[in-house]
Design a binder for these strands. Sequence first.
DNA 1: GCCGCGTAATTAATCATACAAATACAAACG
DNA 2: CGTTTGTATTTGTATGATTAATTACGCGGC
Lengths: 237, 237
Amino acid sequence: MRKPPQSNVTHAIVEQLGHAVVARSFGTKDSFPIEAELCKQFGVSRTVLREAVKMLTAKGLLRARPRQGTWVQEENHWNLLDPDVLRWLMERKFSLQLLAEFTEIRLAIEPMAAMIAATKATPASIAQIRNGIHRMKMAEQGDDDPLESDIAFHVAILHATGNRFYSQLEDVVDAALRISIAFTNRYKGVALADIKAHTKVLDHIEAGQPKRAHAAMTAIIEEVMELIGQARKKSPQ
Amino acid sequence: MRKPPQSNVTHAIVEQLGHAVVARSFGTKDSFPIEAELCKQFGVSRTVLREAVKMLTAKGLLRARPRQGTWVQEENHWNLLDPDVLRWLMERKFSLQLLAEFTEIRLAIEPMAAMIAATKATPASIAQIRNGIHRMKMAEQGDDDPLESDIAFHVAILHATGNRFYSQLEDVVDAALRISIAFTNRYKGVALADIKAHTKVLDHIEAGQPKRAHAAMTAIIEEVMELIGQARKKSPQ
DNA sequence: GCCGCGTAATTAATCATACAAATACAAACG
DNA sequence: CGTTTGTATTTGTATGATTAATTACGCGGC
């Protein structure tokens, strides 16, 4: 994604440990290595390791207590909506199941976002949405990236709500779209039909038609849901 | 909420610093104290302070770089959906604005959750929902807590989706409901009408009627939205 | 005066070590 | 047999020293 690289040692450890945790590389609860063990394993000082563990604790992945040691939290404690956790999950543990759950959330958020945008969007935020569509058109002719332009469109709508919590879900949408591409090239390339469907959403938002904007966005995402459903039938995991 | 107290010094600092950050107690960007300064201020060692800062960094509230120092991130970097951040915001910086934004998110999530639950709910998860309603009835007669029982109902529906991301939004709903109570006693006590409306949702879920479940839940939350709207007219912030 | 370049100063990052606190477990005691 | 007390283990906290990254500054060249 678009994060500054952060070339700290600590950060590197956080990444590795984070990946390992979501990938379930640590067997049973008590098989998680003790501090000293991990230090040796990664070749870093206790300070660095502890700070890394603290960061993962802050994201709900780990828990530590004196004398009991450190262990991986139950999955329902993970902050799934944390951008890092999201990314780790998607990089390490892709599954159609996960993608389906992602999309199910989008189905709640994005249509409602479009609906809200239809009543609250400013000229500036509408311009952002339009820019996304413009990029999709460019991408169709090979002059822009199809994935990035698609993301730009969807994210612009989240921001157009003027609601911080919707904006915050940018990363979920981002991850969901990237994951979509990862599993099937069917999504690759920008079809004219896609552009048409996306333009419809913009039109309704601009016209101040909440319900129609909602419906148009729902159509887009249900299309994705459909694709996933088909894929799962072929190779049910 | 229902978290183990965590009586560490580090955790205490995280709480204090977290509160201070969301309350905007640190003026301009460069007025954030340097490490040593904060250590003296809180009377803790650098170890503790650094680990606390790391945890807040993990939640997107702070950022630190050598020679530039530590500073508060722009608000759009905050992980608003992190349970801690959410709680700090709500404890320190209550506003009708914030509550409205909360509720706007609920308006997307919960009706869709009810919809999904109507097709996917298991006997066990339906029992959970029913238990929530049961508690509301008890609360009406003073035999249970009205707020907690209400929360139990809404959270049960999120879980009934079988979707981890919906489950994860438990804290948002939790916070929203608590905040609701905080600003008006209007919400206090359980009205018979409320119980009726909530029961309707359960009935539709049990009957496997997605659209009706969706509508019933929407009605409940729009009622809340209405209340907020009225309050904002009286004292527009 | 202006531009590039190395150098110094500042701040967080890392390391190493020591000691404190919490708690599970077992042994001792009633 | 239950209770208490001790002890070992693991994380928590403290401190000092060192390293690395980044910016600001001054120096020299033009």
